[in-house]
């Protein structure tokens, strides 16, 4: 198929899923937290408050667009454009479905661009994510946004290290950077984090660390120091109004969806599961949903770390542990156990 046609056929549904999912996520988060705290959450707009995201979007578009007088105008206006772009672009390499090809092997499909460097592409974009957020904090010229931006950069580059190292574990098992090859490996050898093979122990720990580090990258509680509202009002978004604020929030919700999907593909088999390959899309969405709910469950159960505790956890525990995991997985592959 022509690559442009292919990208449209897969990309348009993917974009719709991500944007619709992010809108529903705002509804879900409020509804879910409401249930957890014995209150109702949104109920008024639409059945069970389902149209609340539409109302919110309309409200944000009508709000006055204010740029602080002391702000760096160009950068202030440019910064919100990038976070959603980076998150959506990183979703382009994630396979969402599976087929069985002629010789009976399971093959991952439903991917916009099956790059050879798949996971590297995702990690590179995740590394770029700190810029627009830091720039937003700096350009607003406000001490709270500035502090938040500094925390964001510190947290972003620290947690990127265990995230990349843990993502290397499935890469070493599969011997490929491509996400569809990683799925194909799991089709033969069982899920990286959940199977009877001895490598699954390493895989499970790596999955846990990867998930924690992605929570930190997505700024979710217990790692949402950059927007700790009790100290910093609301992080880098403080000076943003209306739809620009909305775009930052959109990027955050998108990030939780993409992080769940990525964890599902790397460690839990992605579109693999019992039943015919047609069910692949269902399995993938189901696994993503479970991890997605887990993120929100954690967010509303725990409180946030202090800034120094956060760095301590990363550099003293997660980084050494993930280095050990990378070595162990290399040994397992060399010893023929994986």
């Amino acid at each position: 198929m022509n690559p442009i046609v292919h990208a449209l056929v897969i990309g348009v549904p993917l974009l719709t899923f991500l944007m619709g999912g992010a809108a529903l996520a705002t509804w879900f988060e409020r509804r879910f937290s409401g249930k957890m705290q014995t209150r109702w959450g949104p109920t008024v707009v639409g059945p069970a408050g389902l149209l609340q995201p539409v109302a919110d979007a309309l409200k944000m578009m009508q709000k006055e667009d204010i740029v602080p007088r002391a702000a760096d105008r160009t950068l202030f206006n440019l910064a919100p454009l990038f976070p959603p772009f980076l998150v959506i672009a990183s979703a382009a390499v994630i396979p969402f479905a599976a087929t069985i090809d002629a010789d009976g092997a399971v093959k991952a499909t439903g991917v916009v661009a099956d790059l050879d460097i798949g996971i590297l592409w995702v990690m590179a974009l995740a590394g770029l994510m700190v810029f627009p957020i830091w720039v937003a904090g700096w350009a607003a010229n406000n001490k709270y946004t500035m502090l938040s931006g500094m925390r964001m950069v510190a947290q972003g580059i620290s947690y990127e290290i265990p995230m990349v190292l843990c993502a290397l574990v499935p890469v070493i098992f599969a011997g490929s950077l491509s996400l569809s090859d990683i799925v194909a490996y799991q089709a033969v050898h069982g899920w990286n984090a959940l199977s009877l093979s001895p490598s699954a122990i390493v895989g499970a720990v790596a999955a846990l660390l990867f998930f924690l580090a992605s929570l930190a990258e997505a700024n979710r509680i217990p790692f949402d120091i950059p927007e700790a509202e009790s100290e910093l009002i609301g992080g880098v978004m403080v000076e943003y109004t209306g739809i620009k604020f909305g775009i930052f929030m959109l990027a955050e919700y998108l990030h939780t969806i993409v992080a769940s999907a990525l964890t599902a593909v790397l460690f839990f088999g992605g579109p693999l599961g019992p039943g015919p390959a047609v069910l692949g899309l269902g399995w993938m969405l189901g696994k993503t949903l479970v991890l997605f709910v887990l993120i929100y469950w954690i967010r509303w159960s725990l409180y946030r770390f202090r800034s120094d505790q956060l760095m301590d956890l990363c550099w003293r525990i997660l980084v050494p542990l993930s280095l050990v995991l990378v070595m162990l997985s290399a040994l397992l592959v060399a010893g023929g156990f994986a």
């Binding site: 590297l120 592409w121 990690m123 590179a124 590394g127 700190v130």
Partner: peptide, 9 residues
Amino acid sequence: GMQLMLYTG
């Protein structure tokens, strides 16, 4: 990818 990750990131 490495250029993006190491240099830019």
